[in-house]
Write a protein that binds this DNA or RNA. Structure first.
Lengths: 408, 408
DNA sequence: AGGCTTTTGTTCACGGCAAGAGCATAAGCT
DNA sequence: AGCTTATGCTCTTGCCGTGAACAAAAGCCT
């Protein structure tokens, strides 16, 4: 958001601001509230909303609650408005969803896969293409979350699955040049927009699945690195172990935290994206393994808090359970690693509010981040002349809650 | 820079953009070039420049070189224009300078001190107050760089000097509510604006003095942390040492790199901000101590590159010499610590272009960052009516080069 | 030297935009 | 039923950047 510099761009800029406020507010704020929040005159808001409704971007419904005075409206997604496709590819399954402006999520498909690039991405790409055809011009983009570092152009490595420079866009074969993102970075993005990092200037988000990822969130944006692969806090040697990590380095923090570490701790086979159920069993039953995980997590958090001074640390994936089940061990390991000056007011360490749904929601947010720009909106307006009539159509999808439980 | 939302704010916004472009360009760009770069119509630029000249913010001089056509002008600092006071307080001396729009630096004073809060900050505060009185309304703010973490409200800790929660603004007694910043973060800011991190989206800056500081630079801004004390990459346990650090944690990377580490390596006394000359002697003569420092530096850099994926890593302070004298050892230690996928295209590791002047320049930039906003400029315009006549006055200062050698 | 070309600075009519006032609307409250 | 309150709509006003026409100040060519 560079800001308008000509009077012509002013209108476009305010259109984006209004749509962004609707989206970030979950399509729950009233028009009068939005007008106040954005500092607009009522007349200006009137013209803006009317224009956006005509463009097929917004649709107003009467507000449910009144106090007094003329009742206000609630701008929400247009029944034929933009849809973002979002997918979360984990080591053993993927999930595909359609998302409206405001963040309402409709799960379209959930499927297990065999862990190979072709086995995972081929069927996903077909599903994406099929649903995109069904939604037609409403589709504004797609994003895919993956459990490994993403390099320029969508090349992905997942060391413990044996993925080397996997060309994700090519294997998907989806014609809309999908955004390819790291699951941790996207979970952090979701946390920043709709979770416990909302409104936080500097936050640290850690995502625990088979291994550990982490990223800094500054002013609502994960710090993604030069080529988008900067969410790899797990690959710093913060705990003093000497293990060789599948990533090629030695002593990575990531090898001490997550499902793989849990399995290793009780002597079970691990790696290759297998053993989710067994790991959950360990998590539920082995106090010792959980404590070891939480201790390693705490030691690393201390180092990162020293370095970055975040206001809040959030944990997603298994991190939620580690926080709940072994919070004491976590904090006990964290304290001694802190600089003395950090001990007066250490950051809160909280479980994510979004659970396992963060990466998917983050994928959605990344699509809307690209769309909710002057360029994105002008493109839509150009391609959607006279959407006008504001009649609901049959295409509208059935809805689920935006947060949810872990996929099978 | 949130961007304008009303036609009234447009003018203010474009004023700021123009002044920012002049400042960032070192007051060296021609008006025609600035007009093109900012995408303005010639007429708009005309009105803007005329207005800013009248406000005492800009002064145009004919450009030195012509090609053809009507010769253009070069907008630069007004002879009675804004001045930023910038100070760099190191463990054994401080330096005070006045800076104009465009970044021209005039050193006002350089003095050694005894390392106590009162001994260092008292005389500096007096000098600042004296010079501020001399410059009068031209002073738009002051900033002070310090070699330790800065907490909310300007409380500073420098563990190895024994500074605990030193209230810097209070001890300075300077009436302009000075900005208090960490030397590493400010050196990184200068590097981002006028050094090797210019135009870099994600960079890593490391500052080596008595110990080691480091910070991530994203889109031209150091990531400063919740309370401004986020430039402490040195206090992560990245090298596997077991030493207790004066900061209160154990195994800090910072204890392996810098003047203190050099002195310790050859068995000399260290700490307390003493021994700069001896450390320089070690740096110049002891191959072994230098190699040990560079090796530890390289190992830590590898961890940070894994985590953050920066485009460039820059080194300031002693880091410049470590890079020159022991680049091989540095790279040799860095390589094995990298993730395999980072080895194809590792980031450049470069010495700073600003040498020891970075923290001072960063302090200047932080003052101008606060000034070059719509609020800052409107405030100046309110307080400087009819500056008009564009006649140079006697108050103008003598100038030195913006970059320079280390202070004694 | 004189005229032509090229580039930049200045001025001004024009169109677009948000602000704000006045009015209309649709509730709750008495 | 009438009053109060808050919101939506319409229209006028003032501000701003644009772009064209014109002026200015050089370099270039004959």
């Amino acid at each position: 958001m560079t800001g308008a510099t000509t009077s012509g761009e002013l209108r476009a800029h305010n259109r984006v601001r209004l749509l962004r406020a609707v989206h970030d507010g979950g399509a729950a704020h009233t028009r009068s509230r939005l007008t106040r929040d954005l500092g607009l005159a009522r007349g200006t808001a009137s013209v803006l909303v009317a224009g956006l409704a005509e463009d097929g971007l917004l649709h107003e419904e009467p507000a449910a609650e009144h106090t007094r005075g003329r009742p206000t409206q609630v701008p929400g997604p247009h029944p034929r408005g933009p849809i973002a496709l979002a997918a979360d590819v984990r080591e053993d399954a993927w999930e595909l969803a359609a998302c409206e402006l405001g963040g309402r999520v409709t799960v379209l498909d959930v499927r297990p896969h065999d862990g190979t690039p072709e086995g995972a991405l081929g069927p996903l790409g077909e599903a994406m293409t099929g649903h995109a055809r069904r939604f037609g011009h409403r589709v504004i983009g797609a994003a895919v979350a993956l459990a490994g570092p993403v390099r320029h152009g969508g090349l992905v490595d997942i060391a413990h699955l044996g993925w080397r420079s996997v060309d994700v866009p090519a294997l998907l074969g989806f014609s809309g040049s999908p955004i390819v993102g790291n699951d941790t970075a996207l979970a952090a993005l979701a946390e920043a927009r709709r979770g416990r990092l909302r409104g936080v200037r500097v936050g640290l988000h850690l995502h625990v699945d088979f291994d550990l990822g982490g990223v800094l969130v500054v002013d609502g944006h994960p710090v993604a690195g030069a080529s988008g692969s900067g969410a790899e806090f797990g690959h710093m040697p913060l705990t003093g172990n000497e293990r060789r990590c599948p990533c090629g380095a030695v002593g990575c923090w990531s090898t001490d935290v997550g499902a793989n570490a849990l399995l290793r701790h009780v002597g079970l086979a691990y790696g290759g994206g297998r053993g989710r159920e067994q790991a959950e069993h360990v998590l539920a039953t082995s106090e010792e393994a959980v404590t070891a995980n939480a201790t390693a997590l705490g030691r690393g958090i201390a180092a990162l808090v020293n370095a970055h001074d975040p206001e809040v640390v959030t944990l997603s994936g298994h991190g939620v359970e580690l926080r709940e089940r072994a919070g004491q061990a976590l904090l006990a390991a964290c304290g001694p690693g802190l600089m003395a000056i950090r001990r007066d007011a250490p950051p809160r360490i909280e479980g994510s509010a979004l659970g396992w749904r963060g990466s998917l929601l983050g994928a959605m947010e990344s699509v809307f981040d690209a769309f909710l720009t002057t360029e994105g909106i002008e493109l839509w307006r150009k391609n959607h002349p006279d959407q006008g009539l504001d009649t609901p159509d049959r295409q509208s999808v059935t809805h689920s809650t935006p947060t949810g439980k872990k996929a099978p």
